[in-house]
Design a binder for these strands. Structure first.
Length: 898
RNA sequence: GGAGUGUUAGCUCAGUUGGUUUAGAGCACCGCCUUGACAGGGCGGGGGUCGUUGGUUCGAAUCCAAUACACUCCACCA
């Protein structure tokens, strides 16, 4: 242990030699592991599972530091602290990475079977998965690593499937049409993330086309970029507020070439000042048109084949079987020939292209799986509104409310392979020829009965090709990390209490720490799943962190290269420094503007603590010295500590982590180091009395306890270095201090003493008096006894030969006025009074102004009558204080002005 | 376009149901000090009238209204 090294300790604290040692020690002792305990209260946190193939970024650092602070504090408070780590399979992100990796090897996803692709994906996961968890250890994260979960673990996969089947059986699932991105070349759907838009858009043409109005010799002109979809039109839409066209609503128009009658409808979606103000509506080939179609019950006519050619539904034989872009050119010719094309202009637009093939994405209606959200989300909505689940900061309650009031059905199918495959099995071509079951065998039985065909075999069943949205697995995280959907506990659509010891003990979890960006994607849905399956919330408190940005408020991103590597920072400054640096400036819900200065500040803080330790451990004890003179200092710090601890607890209870840290920081640096240690420290190389050394070590230990959640490594190191400790006496499991009573009178006496000391130092500074030149201090006061407790401290910290009362004003002196008392420092020789006079006048003016405002208040009858007595009394006291101060100031000014 | 949040020292933020000095902290800044725990330090200091306007009140940074600006989320131009 380092304290055996003695006085040769470096003046700089070196975290690198300390951090790994303690992390290993804690792990070896099993402190991070938690089991249900019969007599201890549980405190549990589930980690927001990072992407399994991700690497640590600054956002993770902030997020996980906060979680570790909470969990370490709870552990010290004697709770059974359990922080469950894990990773998310992140279907879209991971699949994209695997596809990219394969492409670099010259392998196209489209050349692989599903099984082959998944084999590659799992290999990738085995290779890179979990790196991020190893990185968290460097930060000091005290996760229960024996509980590490992955959202594609077998049990987890099964849980997701069970829930899908359950939701289906409860009637919460349905299949509905939704626009997907279709890649005609790769013959597959691609996710939104795989659709790219060229920088600055692409130049296209906007055509104006005449549609005849039925039964009239009139027409309506629409604007379109995609004339090839004309034959799929099922309405013309105008804005009902558009005076130009309102009269058309309710009439019919005729589709060019095929003369299909389509209604002219009013819909506010149509922009008044874009194009011609008239929109052709093609529900099958445009997402917005589809929505309009939904609102107006329009027919959906899909005129384009999967390979991008037109089909017979377009009703023009000459167009059938030809590519949509050929047809576009052809139709323009044909429209011109029919004199229906009235305009053509260049138009800059965003065209989606497939990341894989660069072909233009075709919006395509396809059947997808949805969860009906309205009913299933009711309790989750209410829970937050009723403060059953608390969001910190509370401002997010509004946002949450707004979203939940307008909750939309959740499309949970994704056109990917990496993820839980949807357990729907199709046995025919009909819209309802499918069943949903956990296994193929169960599906077969269901299919046989549903179809009435007992000849069906498993080969006749075709499983849905899609996988589930990642959030449809991570919304079960708080339940399934405790095996909530295990065979024993889950049945009849509920998780039964009393069947799963772990879940009974740890669930609901205590606090969730995550980013506001995923309040809806993840948090809201966990609350929904929690109520649906247990009738209980998944967590009590939700702490929403901010986003880590750079100094210019830009998000940290790889492309910008503005994100430091967290591991480099830890290597350079130490984990404690990075943790405190992140927390110094990150109030809940506010973005953190990252600046390396903050990390430096954290490092400096560690260094300060280290040097305080060097001082204290160097003190030798002499039993013959009396500890009497330090008694008041010890009592004072005791009070200060207790008062601060109460503040810290208050901050923690409100999830004000930055404030909790800052209060502790000021206690340590300001009160303990700058005041307390200076008060009690013996002269250079002189011994100290035993009582003071004991008290100081006791204080130091208490301080280390308060600091431990923030700075686990240096505090554990010093906790051991301060005292010889057995192998089991570790700070990580030491008892968190309790706030005891404090004396406000004592704190105020000290405060007055500190003001006096500062003023004397100021005079020393201004008059260029050396630190070691002794001075005298005299005070003209009606009550000298009030200084008795601290007079020896004032003497010590001001290097005074004497501190005494005086009845007379002292000529030839420097001085100051505090709280109505006048202080004098007798000084020989000429004194430059102009500066002091200036300051006295300034202060006098301020105090007079202050007095005036107080007097004005007190002379206001309505104030006297309406304000509470307490407030009036306070104002009166303010008035008396101000008067006394003015008197003293005036006297002093009058004298030095002579 | 819809909704939400914010606007307090150079920067990042506190300010707890309107009233303990005409507003606090950390950082940054300025001056002095290489003193024996610590220059990754010590001591001292300067700095804002609380976005703007109006209202409620005995009293407003704090409540209300309007306005400006900023940010976030959602939806997105045929």
């Amino acid at each position: 242990m380092i304290h055996s090294i003695g006085m040769s300790l470096s003046t700089k604290y070196d975290p690198s030699s300390v951090e790994d040692k303690w992390y290993k020690h804690w792990l070896g002792k099993g402190y991070f592991h938690s089991k249900p305990h019969p007599n201890k209260e549980a405190y549990s946190i589930i980690i927001p599972p990072p992407n399994v193939t991700g690497v640590l970024h600054m956002g993770h650092m902030l997020n996980n530091t906060i979680q570790d602070v909470l969990i370490r504090k709870a552990r010290m408070e004697g709770k059974e602290a359990c922080w469950v780590p894990g990773t998310d399979h992140a279907s879209i992100a991971t699949e994209a990475k695997v596809v990219k990796m394969l492409r670099e090897k010259g392998i196209k996803k489209s050349d692989l079977s599903r099984e082959e692709f998944l084999k590659h994906a799992w290999e990738w996961k085995e290779k890179y998965g979990g790196i991020i968890l190893e990185q968290l250890k460097k930060l000091g994260a005290s996760c229960d690593w024996e509980r590490t979960s992955f959202t594609m673990d077998d049990h987890y996969y099964n849980a997701v499937i069970k829930v899908f089947v359950d939701l289906y059986n409860k009637g919460y699932l349905y299949r509905g049409l939704r626009m997907v991105n279709w890649d005609v070349e790769a013959q597959t759907t691609v996710s939104n993330e795989e659709v790219l838009y060229r920088e600055g858009g692409e130049v296209s043409k906007l055509y104006s086309v005449k549609y005849q109005i039925k039964g009239e010799d009139a027409h309506v002109v629409i604007a379109t970029q995609r004339p090839e979809t004309i034959m799929g039109d099922t309405a013309i839409a105008v804005n009902p507020n558009d005076d130009r066209f309102r009269h058309l609503i309710g009439k019919k128009a005729l589709v060019p070439f095929i003369n299909r009658e389509i209604p002219i409808i009013g819909d506010e979606y149509v922009e008044l000042d874009f194009g011609t103000g008239c929109l052709k509506v093609t529900p099958a080939h445009d997402p917005n048109d589809y929505e309009i179609g939904q609102r107006h019950n329009l027919e959906v006519i899909d005129t384009i084949n999967l390979d991008g050619t037109l089909n017979e539904k377009c009703e023009v034989p000459a167009y059938v079987g030809r590519d949509r872009f050929d047809i576009r050119k052809q139709i323009i010719k044909d429209l011109k020939a029919a004199e229906l094309l009235v305009g053509e202009e260049d138009f800059n637009t965003r065209i989606g292209r497939s990341e894989r093939t660069d072909s233009v994405i075709e919006p395509k209606l396809s059947l997808q799986w949805f969860i009906k959200m309205k009913d299933i989300s009711k309790k989750a909505h209410q829970a937050v509104m009723d403060d059953e689940v608390l969001l910190h900061p509370a401002k997010f309650k509004n946002t949450y409310n707004h979203w939940m009031e307008n909750v939309r059905d959740w499309c949970i199918s994704r056109q990917l392979w990496w993820g839980q495959r949807i357990p729907a099995y199709y046995f025919g071509e009909g819209e309802n020829d499918y069943v949903v079951a956990e296994t193929r065998e169960e599906a077969l039985a269901l299919a046989q009965s549903k179809s009435g065909n007992s000849e069906l075999s498993t080969e006749d069943l075709k499983q849905d090709e899609d996988v589930l949205d990642t959030w449809a697995s991570s919304w079960l995280f708080p339940l399934e990390v405790f095996r909530g959907f295990g065979a024993n506990s889950f049945g009849n659509g509920k998780i039964t209490p009393g069947k799963n010891k772990e879940l009974d003990y740890y669930y609901p979890t205590s606090t969730l720490v995550t980013a506001p960006e995923i309040l809806f994607f993840w948090v809201a849905r966990m609350i929904i799943a929690g109520y649906e399956y247990t009738g209980k919330k998944p967590f009590k408190d939700v702490y929403l962190t901010g986003i880590v940005r750079d100094k210019q408020r830009r998000k940290m991103s790889k492309q910008l290269g503005n994100s430091p590597d967290p591991l480099d920072l830890i290597a350079q400054y130490g984990a404690d420094a990075v943790r405190t640096g992140m927390l110094f400036s990150s109030p809940a819900g506010n973005d953190l503007l990252y600046d390396e200065k903050l990390i430096e500040q954290g490092r400096n803080f560690g260094n300060k603590i280290w040097n305080a330790f060097r001082l204290v451990q160097g003190w030798t004890i002499d039993h013959s010295i009396s500890g009497e003179k330090n008694k008041v200092s010890i009592e004072w710090f005791e009070s200060k500590f207790n008062k601060t601890l109460a503040e810290v607890e208050d901050h923690f209870s409100k999830f004000r982590m930055s404030d909790a840290l800052m209060s502790t920081y000021k206690l340590v640096w300001g009160d303990f180091c700058s005041w307390y240690l200076e008060m009690v420290k013996p002269d250079y190389q002189k011994p100290i009395d035993p009582e003071t050394k004991d008290a100081t070590i006791r204080f130091f230990e208490k301080i280390l306890k308060l600091l431990h959640p923030f700075m686990p490594f240096i505090t554990e190191e010093l906790f051991h270095a301060l005292n010889n400790r057995s192998d089991d006496e570790d700070l990580i499991i030491a008892q968190w201090p309790k706030a005891e009573s404090h004396s406000n009178d004592l704190l105020d006496e000290a405060e007055f003493a500190f003001e006096i000391i500062s003023n004397v130092r100021n005079i020393r500074n201004a008059k260029q008096i050396g630190q070691k030149d002794e001075l005298e201090l005299k005070v003209k006061t009606t009550d000298f006894d009030k200084f008795s407790n601290f007079s020896h401290i004032i003497k010590k910290l001001c290097y005074l030969s004497n501190f005494s009362k005086t009845e007379e004003k002292i000529e030839s002196s420097s001085g100051f006025v505090l709280r109505g008392d006048e202080f004098f420092i007798p000084l020989a020789g000429a004194i430059d009074i102009s500066k002091e006079r200036e300051e006295l006048e300034k202060e006098l003016a301020y105090t007079r102004g202050f007095l005036k405002s107080v007097e004005k208040k007190l002379s206001n009858e309505r104030f006297i009558n309406n304000a509470p007595e307490k407030v009036v009394a306070m104002e009166k006291k303010k008035m008396e204080d101000a008067k006394a101060k003015i008197k003293a100031l005036e006297e002093r000014l009058a004298r030095i002005a002579r």
